[in-house]
Every structure is written in C-alpha cells, then in structure tokens.
Design a binder for these strands. Structure first.
Lengths: 110, 110
DNA sequence: CCAAATATGTCGTAATACGACCTATCGGAG
DNA sequence: CTCCGATAGGTCGTATTACGACATATTTGG
C-alpha cells in the first residue's frame, strides 16, 4: 500500500519494537506488522529475512533455531543489549523525524 | 541528523508542500527545509536538483529560468495540476504511514 | 583581494525493499 | 489420497534514491 521508499528506514525500528518483550520468528514478525497496521503496512517475507540477518550481524539481535516435533523448524530472534539501546535511539529519531516533516508539510497532529 | 534511509520517500512530499502556495527555486527549498525543521532535517542541494528534475519529468512540477540583473540565474519551480493532486495523495499516505508505524512501535502521539 | 554565501549541476556509491524464484512441512477440502 | 493454501525459510538481481566528491560561476562583505 505504501511507497517502497517511504518504508525504507522504518523496518528495523518495527522489528526491534516487536521483539521488545518476547522472542519471535521471522514469519511471525511479518504477519504481526501486517495485522497491527490493519493490513496497510506489509513487508514481504523475503525482505525481512535479509534484514534480520543484517541486524544479527550488527549485534542488535541474537537468533536460535527451534525444532519441535510436529512443527517446522523456526528461527527465533531476541534483542541483545545493543538492540535494546538501538530501539530507544530509533524510537527517538523516528519521533523527531515525524515532527520535522509534519512541521514542513503543515500537519499539526496525525 | 537523520538516517539516510529514513529520509527516502519524504523529499517529494516536502517539495510539493513548500511549493503549494508560491514558486521557489532549488536553493531556497533546501534552506527552507532546514530552517523549518529547526536545522534537524537537511537535504543536500545536490540531492534536491536531481529530484526536482525527476519531478518535472513526471509532470508534477514546471520550471522556468529567471535572470535578473544583479542576481545569478535561478530556476523557479511551481506545481502543476498533477503536482497538486500528488501533494494531496502523498499527504494522506504519509499520515496513514505514520499512524501504522506508531501503532506498531507503541507511540500514541508524536 | 579573498572568503563565504548563493546557485546549479554531474558522476559514482551504498543502502535496501521488492520481484522472481526455490525448497519443505502441515492441515484441511475435495 | 491428492492437491492447495498457509506456514517457514532462503537466494539473486533490480530499481530507487540520498549522498559524497567534484566542478562551475556570481555576489557580497571584511
């Protein structure tokens, strides 16, 4: 629904926020973003996986494989200490960015 | 100040909004964005010029050279009818996008 | 006279979301 | 039983786009 370029830069914030309280796997993250935005914000799964990989390399996430009989294997991600700090930083940046754009575009409140 | 990726996708909205009521030239647009965001949002001029060019090709803007004695030549841009429609569309998209992200990230209001 | 601000532009790079494509398992409908 | 959709993970190449480096020219102020 949204412009591809508009979505750039927010995906990491979204992932970090969804992992704040519990560990989740990639597919779940994609579905959650779609559900919580009322279907308006959709990230393709094949966009999420490379991003998760990158974020693990950056030290923001830690993953582990979980294999249970009766279910397919899943890779669960959880926040590291660095990821938690990044979440706070990105939340602030996002808020300030929103305010800056709104000030110029002439939207007082969303 | 902001992440490069975060800024992608909003520059066209900003330009269209600033041109809503009067024509302006490129340098002025850059300075205005910086000033109105309190210096927080800065787009380099050499990012603006190609964007303005693209937007003119897309039919959103119309430009004209203005040469006055005593000043350098400037290229002024103004909105076309299509640009005006694009502004409304992008304003709505931006608002909805903001709401979707905030819903997931857990920010109630900016 | 020289520096800074004004004013516009080109070229190559990096980041990243997506489309196309691939693999595999599970539950339910036919 | 078979096929399909949902679940679950992944690779590779492409398009978009903001930026850094670089180039150019004029005007104003110290």
């Amino acid at each position: 629904m949204f412009n591809r370029e508009l979505k750039k830069g927010s995906i990491q914030l979204l992932i970090l926020a969804l992992l704040e309280n519990r560990e989740r796997h990639g597919y779940e993250l994609g579905k959650l973003i779609e559900a919580r935005s009322g279907g308006r914000l959709v990230f393709r799964l094949h966009s999420l996986y490379p991003t998760l990989c990158r974020m693990e390399e950056m030290g923001l996430l830690k993953s582990r494989w979980v294999e249970k009989p009766g279910t397919r294997r899943r890779r669960f991600y959880r926040l590291t200490a660095g990821g938690r700090r990044a979440l706070e930083r990105k939340r602030q940046r996002w808020t300030q960015y929103m305010q800056a754009v709104n000030q110029i575009v002439g939207l007082d409140d969303a």
